[in-house]
Design a protein around this nucleic acid. Sequence first.
DNA 1: GTTCATGCAAATCGTTTGCACAATG
DNA 2: CATTGTGCAAACGATTTGCATGAAC
Lengths: 132, 132
Amino acid sequence: MLYSYHHVNYKRSSLRDNLLAIVQGTNTHPTAQELYELLRNHYPGVGLATVYRNLKILVEQGFIVKVEIKGSSERFEARLDRHYHLICESCGSISDIPLQVDQDLDSRVEEVTGCRVIKHEIQFFGLCKNCR
Amino acid sequence: MLYSYHHVNYKRSSLRDNLLAIVQGTNTHPTAQELYELLRNHYPGVGLATVYRNLKILVEQGFIVKVEIKGSSERFEARLDRHYHLICESCGSISDIPLQVDQDLDSRVEEVTGCRVIKHEIQFFGLCKNCR
DNA sequence: GTTCATGCAAATCGTTTGCACAATG
DNA sequence: CATTGTGCAAACGATTTGCATGAAC
C-alpha cells in the first residue's frame, strides 16, 4: 500500500465469481470470446469488455493464468502449477502435458548464455488424440 | 500446380531482395515496423503494408521465419535451423540460445499423451547479458 | 499483355478505455 | 457516500485487404 500510488480494493461481484467458476470448471483453455458466450447463459446482458476486465482482475489476483498461443487469441486456465501445452494443428485445441517441468533446463541455459533465466515455457505442436 | 487452385509465380523485386538482406543481416528478430523503418533508408516511399506483404512471401518461400513472442508483435529471423529463444523481461530483446534442440522430448510426449507430436518450441524468460 | 508488386486508404480483429449509471461495502 | 462493477460505444494497435497504378516477365 505504501508503495502503490493507487490501491484497488476489489469488490465482490457474482458475475466475476461465475466467470472464475467457468474457467475452473474446464480444461479447454477458453478465449475471452468463448467465456463471454458461456457467461451469457447466466448474464444475458453482459458485455465483452466486462469479461476482459474481469479476466484481467482474476489474473492479477492469481486465480487464473493467461496463456498465449501462437496464432490464437488470449486463452485462460485455472491450473496454477507449471506445465506444458500441446497445440493441435488440426483442430486448434490445447491440451495440458502430464510431464514434469524440467527445472534443470534453466540453469543449463544460464551457463551456456550468461543470461539470467527465470523460467521457460514449452509448446508442443502436433495432433491431439481426436485428430491423430 | 495440379492441386493448387491458383498458382502464384512471384516476380523479383529489389525491395523484397533488400528486405530479405536486412533480415539476414541481423540477429535482433525485428518487427515489421522496425523493418519498415530500416527499409525507408533505401525506399523512402515504401508503405508498411508492402513490408507485411513481402514478409509473408519470404516466409512462404522459406527464406525467413516468423517468431511469435508473448506480448510482442510478430518478429522475423533468417536463421532456419531450429533453436530456442530467450526473452529479456527488462528490455524486451530476444536472443538465440546456443543449446542443442532436444529431439527426444517429442517422442517422450507422444508416449505420455497419446498425441502425435511434430515439434516443440521453448521460450526462456529472464534477463539478457546487458540487463542482468 | 498478363500477372505480380506497390502505395494508399479503408477494413478487420482482438483488446482496451471513457463515460454514465448501477451495485457493493 | 466513496469506490468499484457494468454496459455501451468509441478508441486502439497490429495486421490485412481493395483498388488503381506501375514494374516484371
